[in-house]
């Protein structure tokens, strides 16, 4: 293992740790709200990773303002585009999850998914 690489790319390492935190929250938390928060942490970590990969040290955002048209002056714009698309997707799935949570809460007055399941099994429907 070469730990020097880990230190050089500490930002990517942080993104992966955040992804792990979000993933395990989405998977393991019982509370639906905490699950949704986990989902958002997971998605945001991916965007952080993408943005880091598009960034090139010492260059600017790819918007031509002072007439410089050389490619060398700007960072890679594609990851930013991907991040934007990803944000749209994650906003819509978050909205869907929240609306499902509201539905479940109005019916069962709890946010605990496992409790809802056991109650459904008891009802036997």
């Amino acid at each position: 293992m070469n730990f020097a690489n880990l230190l050089n790319n500490y930002a990517e390492a942080v993104a992966m740790i955040l992804f792990g935190i979000g993933f395990s929250n989405l998977l393991l938390q019982k509370n639906l709200m905490k699950k949704i928060i986990g989902l958002n942490i997971m998605d945001t970590a991916t965007y952080l990773f993408l943005a880091l990969k598009g960034y090139i040290e010492g260059r600017k955002a790819p918007v031509v303002v002072d007439g410089i048209q050389s490619v060398e002056a700007y960072v890679n714009p594609i990851p930013s585009g991907l991040v934007l698309t990803g944000i749209v997707v994650s906003v819509s799935v978050t909205a869907l999850m929240l609306s499902l949570t509201i539905r479940l809460y109005r019916r069962y007055h709890t946010l605990d998914l496992d409790e809802i399941s056991t109650r459904l099994k008891k009802e036997g429907k």
Binding site: F19, G22, F23, L26, L27, L32, K35, L39, M42, D43, T46, F49, L50, K53, P79, L82, G86, V93, L96, M97, L100, T101, R103, L104, R107, Y108, L113, I116, S117, L120, E123, K125
Partner: peptide, 29 residues
């Protein structure tokens, strides 16, 4: 109640899957 609970569970598992898929695509890119 059953279908809403099933839809929630489906969404949770699917979102875990698509999170991993997106990360894999980012690595490959």
């Amino acid at each position: 109640g059953r279908t809403i609970e099933a839809a929630t569970r489906y969404m949770i598992m699917s979102l875990l899957g698509s999170g991993l898929l997106l990360l894999g695509i980012c690595f490959l890119y």
